[in-house]
Simulated assay, not measured.
Amino acid sequence: MTGRVVVIGDALIDELRDDAGVREFVGGAGLNVAVGLARLGIPTSLIAMVGDDAAGEQIRAYLAEHDVVLLPSPSEHGSSRAVSTRSAGGEPQYVFNEAAQNRRVRYGDAERAALADAPMVVVSCFPFDDAEQTDALLDAAASVPLAIDPNPRAGMLRDRAAFVRGFEKAAARAQLVKVGEDDAQLLYGTPLEELREKLSSLGVEAVLATYGAGGAAIDVGELTVSRGIADLPGRIIDTMGGGDAVLSTTVALVRDGLPGDEASWGYVLDRAMEVAAATCRSEGALLRIPE
């Protein structure tokens, strides 16, 4: 494939507050996946809402530094910001500003041309509770394989039932869907195993399930492949970018077609676990490569 992978999702400023003080990072799940793909050597574009403000300039400069092409949607509320307060265990609790809660992407000629040329479109942290935006996404990406991470955030979730409807409508069209234990609890109030079965029943070709310290599994038809977390030197510093690293690595390896056997899927999961483990050994969500 010659086209760039296109990621559709959020781009924002992560403001981290803990005992060490306050730090800012460029982030957002969609942006993290796009930058992660670029760091893995995959040409990538990002469709995201970015404001014309100082934070927006920071986001643009960061994406340019990592060779990600930005196709920005305008924002009347400025750039999105997430203030996260860390618990003793390192898991962030988020509060989102008005821009993040009203995120919206638009599909003009440039966006549609990029989507038409993409080998795969990755959707992460999308407002699936907005039926109009969900329909616009599916229309714009109608002819391209989809990879979806619902990545719901309690602070941005307006209507849980509507989000589930929009997510399932998109998932039924997807080649790959990544879900975690938090997604299953927030959206369905059920164990992740039940959500895996539901997504498979919707027709998702490959369901990628992440369990944090419990590793990951992938369901492809009757085949299930599982892997534990990778054991790398050093301690875990920050889990914020772990799931995004798993998705970036998986998409990098399957963007031109899903593997057809257990050994190939095992390689994908092994590599995803290694990259996630390296990422979690540095502060911030920037994907790190073990080598």
Rank of each mutant, 00 (worst) to 15 (best):
S264W: 01
G21H: 12
N151C: 05
A55S: 12
A252E: 03
V83R: 05
P145C: 08
Q58H: 04
L138G: 01
A285F: 13
V179W: 03
G89S: 15
M156F: 11
I289L: 15
G234T: 07
V68G: 01
D10H: 06
Q185S: 13
L202P: 09
A29E: 07
T279I: 01
S73P: 00
L232V: 10
V121W: 02
L16W: 10
L12M: 05
I59M: 10
E111I: 01
P43T: 02
A154W: 04
A64I: 05
A20Y: 10
R106G: 00
R271G: 11
A88C: 01
N97C: 04
P92M: 07
V22R: 15
P145Q: 13
A64R: 12
V83Y: 02
M240T: 09
A131S: 15
A147M: 15
S248V: 13
L202S: 05
A217S: 12
Q133V: 04
R86K: 10
G78Y: 11
E274A: 12
L192G: 00
R235W: 03
A54Y: 12
Q101I: 03
S87K: 13
G212S: 12
S200P: 12
Y188K: 11
D117I: 01
A88I: 03
P191M: 10
P43V: 00
D183F: 07
R288N: 05
N102P: 14
T190G: 08
L186E: 15
L258M: 14
P145V: 03
T250H: 15
P127W: 06
Q93R: 15
P119I: 00
A272Y: 12
E222S: 07
V268P: 11
L46H: 12
Q175Y: 04
R103A: 00
P127E: 00
D270L: 13
D256Q: 12
L223V: 08
S264I: 01
R227S: 02
L146W: 03
Y267P: 15
E98A: 10
A20I: 06
G260Y: 08
A162C: 02
G36R: 11
G56P: 08
R255W: 09
E15H: 14
V246T: 05
Y94C: 07
G3M: 02
E65P: 15
A245V: 07
Y94I: 05
V268G: 13
M49R: 09
R81F: 06
A55K: 09
R158Y: 01
A113K: 08
L192I: 02
A88Q: 04
Q185I: 12
V164A: 09
A230T: 15
R23L: 03
G242P: 08
G214R: 13
E205F: 09
E205L: 07
V254I: 13
G89D: 15
Y188T: 00
G284Q: 01
R255A: 11
R112D: 03
L253H: 04
V246I: 08
F126P: 00
Y188M: 08
V268Q: 15
T85V: 04
